[in-house]
Amino acid sequence: MEGLSASEQREFQSRMERKQMKEFMGMFSNLVTHCFDSCVDNFTTKSLVQRETDCVSRCVQKFMAGSERIGQRFQEQQAQMMNQSPTGR
């Protein structure tokens, strides 16, 4: 990263934005798939029943909370790894 010129940084930045959007999309579709798979097992009705809707809500809430906690641990590890590395990365 440090070796990039200003215009390279801009191009990199713009790619990162697209990538972030893509990441968000991927997260969204994984979340849908996971909560659907965990919460929906009854196909005698065409629409979600209350129990399923509630399960999906808790699933999303728990996923976000877990994700945040894992994110904190991950960042701590990244920081620790950069300090350990001989080249300071």
Binding site: F28, V32, V40, F43, K46, S47, T53, V56
Partner: peptide, 25 residues
């Protein structure tokens, strides 16, 4: 076949629900 139809419909419901929750958040 019936299972697939209902499954697709419920998958779509989950998609909407998750989208709603993320937007609210």
């Amino acid at each position: 076949g019936v299972c697939i139809d209902r499954c697709a419909s419920k998958f779509f419901d989950v998609q909407m629900k998750v989208s709603e929750l993320l937007q609210a958040e």
